[in-house]
């Protein structure tokens, strides 16, 4: 009896949250598409998300690219496939590691910051104040963040892809004794248009998820500093999970003919 009640309650909470998130998403997207646009806010968010995430994303990409090359070389040597390093590094990085790692790193940085900022505005009544000053918080706070993140993540991931491949290149030529010219030629030969496209599409989707989760959890936070803390955690966790889930979906759409 009590157990059934528990299942029912969990189900109801889940459905309520899904519905709330659905409405929030539709509302946010519709504000992204309709003028007026707060260009100054979009610009400052783009700098914050794109430019200030560069060090984190760049370092992650550099070392991961190098590790990938090393692992493939070591692992590949068991069946004489050392020569595949360049090809596997570029495909693996551009298709998967670049967007996913970039997305996760930015989720940790940006989702959390957005949830904390908007959450604090919520609990200190700043969002109510916005409303009474006839400014829609969706238009003023949420749309600029969504637009900026969706546009900037592809740029970031493009940079991450290049740095990641460069990491593999540096390690391979410097430590594993590959010929630089040959390595670069293989890299370019292996890379296809679809790989880059999928990388950028994934990045766009992840950017949208990152901003959406940050804004959603911030916007619905309640109960002072503790509430903002909970919102921040939830934003990062849910953004990370949704990134990994949507990564599968986009991969399936692109590469399963």
């Amino acid at each position: 009896m009590n157990f059934l009640g528990l299942i029912g309650r969990v189900m109801l909470t889940f459905l309520a949250t899904a519905g709330r998130l659905g409405i929030f998403t539709v509302n946010s997207v519709s504000h992204c598409l309709r003028p007026p646009f707060f260009i100054r806010h979009i610009g400052s968010q783009m700098i914050n998300i794109g430019y200030y995430s560069l060090p984190v994303v760049g370092l992650t990409a550099l070392f991961t690219g190098a590790v990938l090359a090393l692992q493939i070389y070591e692992g590949g040597s068991r069946f004489n496939a050392e020569s595949a390093v360049a090809g596997i590094v570029v495909i693996g990085f551009v298709r998967e590691l670049g967007p996913v790692l970039g997305g996760l790193m930015v989720a940790g940085r940006v989702s959390a910051a957005m949830a904390a900022e908007i959450g604090t505005m919520r609990v200190t009544e700043q969002i109510d104040a916005l409303t009474t000053l006839a400014t829609d918080p969706f238009k003023y706070l949420i749309a600029p963040r969504l637009i900026a993140a969706t546009l900037m993540l592809p740029c970031l991931v493009l940079v991450a892809d290049v740095i990641g491949v460069a990491g593999g290149f540096i390690l391979s030529t410097d430590k594993l004794g590959f010929n630089p010219g040959a390595y670069l030629k293989t890299t370019v030969d292996y890379l296809e248009y679809d790989d880059v496209m999928s990388s950028l599409v994934k990045a766009g989707v992840f950017g949208f998820i990152i901003a959406l989760m940050g804004c959603y959890h911030g916007y619905h936070s309640r109960g002072g500093a503790q509430g903002v803390g909970v919102a921040t955690t939830n934003a990062v966790v849910s953004a990370s999970i949704l990134i990994l889930m949507s990564n599968y979906v986009v991969t399936e759409l692109f590469f399963s003919q």
Partner: peptide
């Protein structure tokens, strides 16, 4: 126009 109890200024 509204003055909030906690001021609610945009920080």
């Amino acid at each position: 126009g509204m003055l909030f109890q906690g001021a609610a200024l945009f920080d």
